[in-house]
């Protein structure tokens, strides 16, 4: 890791100020993507602004049909939260399957959402649960937030302060892990909402990162079960291909994981 200056912010305003004063700052949340990247010298920042002590970015609350999680909440806190388990049990279970116990003690929802790793779990849930990403200056619908690999609608210096999820009638998640990296090679979050609409968020497989599988959503709106997916397939042209799996393999894996998610509503299944 190249030399840097560490700054700890106690408020969102202070974090923004510290960020702007530096020439090439980065925000530090759990740091479990940023620090490994900096250790390998794949990323260089002169200042790291630590967001984890900002009280306004903590907390979990349920209001009506909305579950709101502060951007600074760790995966361990979210997965063990009785509010999250009560409102969206499949979301709690999905978050409990991220990384490992030690990673979940540090990694945060805000960091995961802002990083938009194409194989992160959270973006699929944000899409399926019609999330609203709250920042220090505005609110952004999840559909408009994840723009490309590691790219989001965030402006330079903008901070994810919280995420609101629409509480569905029922939902489920299933992923197939890469045996080495443990990130999903395909992860599918399915949700049936109280207005009857269905949303399907897919991570790990898309060439442009997480995406909604609209064709499956339409089929499932009439019949919310795995049978409705028979005969529907994804275009391999949209899928990632690498040494771990071809685009055709991933396209098929997404369909299989969608079926597994529908068979495990209220929960999350991590395969391998």
């Amino acid at each position: 890791m190249y030399p840097l200056s560490y700054r700890r912010a106690s408020s969102v305003d202070e974090a923004r100020r510290l960020f702007q004063e530096a020439s090439d700052a980065a925000y530090l949340a759990g740091g479990h993507t940023l620090l490994p990247t900096m250790k390998q010298r794949l990323a260089v920042h002169d200042v790291l602004v630590d967001l984890t002590r900002i009280e306004a970015m903590r907390g979990i609350s349920v209001s009506g049909d909305t579950l709101t999680i502060g951007g600074g909440m760790t995966h361990a806190e979210v997965s063990e939260s009785s509010e999250v388990k009560g409102a969206i049990s499949s979301l709690a279970a999905m978050v409990g399957s991220i990384g490992d116990a030690q990673v979940r003690h540090r990694g945060t929802i805000g960091g995961s959402i802002a990083n938009n790793d194409p194989a992160a779990d959270y973006p699929s849930a944000a899409l399926a649960l019609a999330a609203t990403i709250k920042t220090d200056s505005r609110e952004i619908a999840a559909d408009d937030f994840f723009t490309a690999l590691y790219e989001t609608a965030l402006e330079e210096g903008e901070i994810v302060t919280g995420v609101s999820f629409r509480i569905p009638e029922t939902a489920g998640y299933a992923k197939f892990r890469n045996p080495a990296s443990r990130y999903p090679m395909a992860g599918v979050f399915v949700a049936k909402h109280k207005d009857g609409s269905v949303r399907v968020g897919v991570t790990g497989a898309g060439m442009e990162g997480a995406f909604r599988w609209h064709e499956a959503e339409e089929a499932l709106a009439g019949n919310f079960s795995g049978e409705a997916l028979a005969g529907i397939s994804l275009d391999p042209g949209m899928m990632m291909g690498d040494i771990h799996g071809s685009p055709e393999y991933r396209a098929n894996l997404v369909a299989v994981m969608a079926g597994r998610a529908l068979a495990n509503l209220g929960s999350a299944e991590a395969i391998i």
Binding site: R8, P36, R106
Partner: peptide, 25 residues
Amino acid sequence: TSQCGACVVHLDGKAVKSCTVLAAQ
């Protein structure tokens, strides 16, 4: 690289990988 867990210590009562935490944090 935060994979193996040989560096696990407890920070404020929670198991963490100390190779992926700054002393300043």
